[in-house]
């Protein structure tokens, strides 16, 4: 199963490397969002610095929608979804592979966004070493949660003509706990009180585990028909 997962993940990432859509379109979109937030919220009053955690994760969520959409657009575009099904790979493995590829893309985007908020919003000046540890842990487990829930709902919406509009409606309410948890954890880390943030990290980890389990179970029957 993990072998299958690695196969699918490398395949997706190779497609991503070759097409460079994430690099050429999604990453600039992420930076654009940081500027748009700055236009909407007065940069001089320190508002941006205070609300950085929220803005960061809202931007991540929107980028995640694009990444997930892409992950399934490549499948349905050239019929490689059929090929995946025929190849006799374990459905749980396919799920893990696709989620892992989405997670890697998301982590790269988070790196871009993180550098963006650190420079543009001056957000990281009060974070200490333990704060950075919390930020790293939060990013990892929140991304795992977003990627697993996103892959599950992505395959549900895949193949439907209305998927571009349906996916956000289905996925964003489900990801509310991730937004709440990761934002609170970042707030704690950035204000130098990282001890308050670890319970939120636990919540994010539980969320990621639940959705990984649900996705691995549900992927088999879903892949049969889509």
């Amino acid at each position: 199963m993990f072998g299958d997962a690695a196969l699918v993940a490398t395949k997706d990432l190779r497609v991503e490397m070759r097409s460079r859509v994430s690099l050429n379109q999604v990453a600039p979109f992420a930076l654009l969002m940081l500027l748009v937030f700055a236009f909407a919220l007065d940069p001089d009053r320190g508002v941006l610095t205070r609300v950085t955690p929220g803005l960061f994760w809202v931007a991540v969520l929107f980028c995640a929608l694009l990444a997930i959409e892409r992950s399934f657009a490549t499948e349905s575009a050239d019929g490689s979804g059929e090929a995946l099904r025929m190849a006799g790979l374990d459905p749980g493995g396919i799920f893990l592979g696709k989620a892992a590829a989405v997670a890697v893309v998301l982590l790269a985007l988070e790196l871009v966004l993180g550098a963006g908020v650190a420079i543009l919003y001056d957000a990281t000046s009060r974070a200490d070493a333990s704060g950075w540890l919390l930020i790293l842990a939060t990013c990892l487990s929140a991304t795992a949660g977003i990627a697993s829930a996103g892959t599950l709902y992505g395959v549900l919406a895949a193949g439907l003509r209305v998927r571009e509009t349906l996916l956000p409606l289905l996925l964003l309410p489900v990801l509310t706990p991730v937004l709440i948890g990761s934002t609170r954890a970042f707030e704690a880390a950035l204000s130098g009180a990282s001890g308050d943030g670890w319970p939120w990290f636990a919540l994010l980890t539980v969320f990621a585990l639940i959705y990984t389990a649900a996705g691995m179970t549900a992927f088999g029957p879903l892949l049969e028909e889509s």
């Binding site: 709902y153 549900l156 919406a157 193949g159 439907l160 003509r161 209305v162 349906l166 409606l169 289905l170 309410p173 489900v174 549900a218 029957p221 879903l222 028909e225 889509s226």
Partner: peptide, 27 residues
């Protein structure tokens, strides 16, 4: 309320009865 609206929107999406039922059941 929003989750229910999402579920109902998924139900309205076109598809064969069987695949639609399966998607909807998971959601």
């Amino acid at each position: 309320m929003l989750l229910l609206l999402g579920y109902l929107a998924l139900r309205k999406a076109p598809g064969t009865a069987d695949s639609q039922a399966k998607r909807s059941a998971i959601v």
